[in-house]
Amino acid sequence: MTASRNALYGALLLLPAAVLLWVFTYQPILATLGNSLYSTPRGRRASVFVGLDHYQTMIADPVFWKALTNNAIYALTTIPLSMALALAMALFVNAKLRGQGLVRMAYFTPTVLPMVAVANIWMFFYAPDYGLVDQVLGLFGGGGNNLLGSKETALGALIVITIWKEAGFFMIFYLAALQQISPTLIEAAELEGASRRQIFRRVTLPLLMPTTLFISINAVIGAVRLVDHVIAMTKGGPDNATVLLLFYVYQVGFAFWDTGYAAALTAVLLVMLALIALFQFGYADKRVHYR
């Protein structure tokens, strides 16, 4: 077989995947970037080129800024907390433990549930007066809260749900990584006189860093991607207290039918995610892999 023949076969083998990627990923991205420079077509008015108009609107849009701030708060709390909780759970179920399989399954269950089902369960937990959370609070004399209905607590309530859902998923990765660490390394550290805390801080944690990076990338994506519960529970309210970026994109695009502006919002979202991913892969990756 000649070299050119080989290249042809190679290209043909790649073709199906390439076509799918192009049609469903890259072409829509480029189309979105393009659309963000055009006005939204309405009725008989076809879309016209408006340049950076949408982006100027965005800068002046208080809801956009609210969504950005909310999303930042949402990400900066859910990511570290769910990862810390995942690590703690993984350490717990990695130890010798009665009913280990059952505990692992229990921790993983929230991951299996669809987000809308999760929202349904938590709607009940958060219900004023008769909901689980309010009843517990009532025992301490703090009942009568509408956690999802007040501006101060609504975002926090959603953050709790996200942590609850994500931690079990991340735990699986930490658990797998913990089981990869050679017990001899831990024994060697013990023999050298390291305390349990020192072993965790100086051996286990550094050896988990590649996993931590992987999980953090997933967590960032999750923090932007997971908006099902916003749609199911609060619809961004009250008073935009729970508007997240992707939810705002959805609202602008599919509730207000301002597709041009939604495209511009999407473009900003994409650029932000790309920058974060670049940092994670380009900078953190080099510091985290030891081989």
């Binding site: 001899t184 390394l185 024994e187 060697a188 013990e190 550094p206 030891y290």
Partner: peptide, 20 residues
């Protein structure tokens, strides 16, 4: 006593060097 209190050192078959 635990290993750390026995005042001895050990070389492991796999060397058990810390990769990081």
């Amino acid at each position: 006593l635990p290993a750390s209190k026995r005042n001895l050192s050990m070389v492991f078959q796999s060397y058990a060097l810390f990769p990081h």
